[in-house]
């Protein structure tokens, strides 16, 4: 990208080379932080509008044009709210927990290729990093539930632990299925491979199965309905974040939505060609890749919202049954099938 290069040059002229790297990193981090905090807010708004649409309502439409400033106002309200907590809470862990959740989800965003060359950090174990970092988030949930000294929060946190540990497997395995085709964990290379057709086409049947498993497990991973056992408002009130208020609650809330974006972004990258345009129609205009990437991601985000506003919640034992008795065996079989297909060269290449 030209702008980024010119900024880079400008910095080099201004400062010695050793310091530039650090300043650049800080600047990029700041940009990402701002962008994705705002993105999170607008995901909340999107969810509310989608929910309203499903539920025969209008949804927020008063603050700003079509309610566009509604979540900004909500965020301001949350910022200005008093932070309350229980007296017997474990103060250190209680205050630490929200940061675990929000930091890990923001970290994951760093490695997504939004379009060619627009990627903060192209790590060579990209997918592995994503899976690893998303597991750390659950520690925040566990800590939050444990340290609140609230029985509902504790049950919620324990459910979260059980749920995340189980569904990590499915996420990992379904992504591994796709890695068999790409032969690389690096996200930029995964997209490079898809120039011969999106992976969901290349891998055809096993890829579709992997995608379905990924979406189910991904929804569970983000603790969203029908897998919102962790919050389960009709059972546990608010689950693990019962005792949180103000900005600390907002971190949990924001992280949930950013996580949803991440899950959808991974799916868009791994299954649907990331920033690649369909049939290469806009290949000559590279910056449109951002548009395609976001379009694909938001379609998947919408799919997850659709789940949430349609399905009832599972029970905790049914959740585990689904994972261990159905998804996991199917997944394992699916990997073998995929391996055979790759080995025999039966993938579809455009």
């Amino acid at each position: 990208m030209d702008i980024i290069l010119s900024i880079h040059d400008w910095f080099l002229g201004l400062l010695p080379a050793q310091i530039t790297g650090f300043t650049k990193m800080a600047l990029i981090a700041l940009t990402y932080l701002t962008l994705f905090a705002v993105l999170g807010l607008y995901l909340v708004l999107l969810e509310r509008r989608v929910a309203a649409w499903f539920q025969l309502r209008i949804g927020p439409n008063r603050v700003g044009f079509q309610g566009l400033l509604q979540t900004m106002a909500d965020a301001l309200k949350l910022l200005s709210k008093e932070l309350t907590g229980t007296v017997k809470a474990d103060k250190f862990l209680y205050n630490l927990a929200p940061y675990f959740v929000i930091v890990t989800s923001l970290m994951a965003l760093g490695i997504f290729p939004f379009t060619q060359n627009l990627q903060a950090y192209d790590i060579n174990i990209g997918l592995f990093f994503l899976i690893a970092i998303s597991s750390i988030g659950v520690i925040g949930v566990l800590l939050g539930g444990w340290s609140s000294n609230n029985k509902y929060a504790l049950i919620g946190a324990m459910r979260s632990g059980v749920q995340t540990i189980s569904y990590e497997l499915s996420i990992g395995l379904s992504l591994l299925t796709m890695v068999l085709i790409t032969g690389s964990l690096q996200l930029s290379e995964i997209i490079e491979v898809q120039k011969n057709g999106w992976l969901i086409l290349q891998g055809h049947i096993p890829a579709v199965i992997a995608f379905m498993i990924y979406m189910i497990a991904g929804t569970a991973e983000t603790n969203r309905a029908p897998f919102d056992m962790v919050e389960a408002e009709s059972e546990l009130g608010a689950g693990f974040h019962t005792e949180y208020s103000g900005m600390k609650f907002a971190y949990f809330f924001l992280a949930e939505f950013i996580n949803m974006f991440i899950i959808a972004a991974i799916a868009a990258t791994v299954f649907f060609g990331g920033w690649l345009s369909p049939f290469g129609i806009t290949e000559s205009i590279p910056w449109l890749g951002v548009f395609w990437f976001l379009l694909k991601t938001f379609i998947l985000v919408f799919l997850m919202m659709w789940f949430r506003w349609t399905f009832p919640r599972l029970r905790v034992d049914q959740l585990l049954t689904l994972e261990w008795k159905y998804l996991l065996p199917i997944n394992l079989a699916n990997i073998v099938i995929m391996a055979l297909i790759v080995w025999l060269g039966l993938t579809l290449q455009l």
Binding site: Q55, D228, A232, S234, W309
Partner: peptide, 9 residues
């Protein structure tokens, strides 16, 4: 049972 939409219907 967790399906909020039914409420509005």
């Amino acid at each position: 049972v967790g399906a909020l939409t039914s409420y509005f219907y």
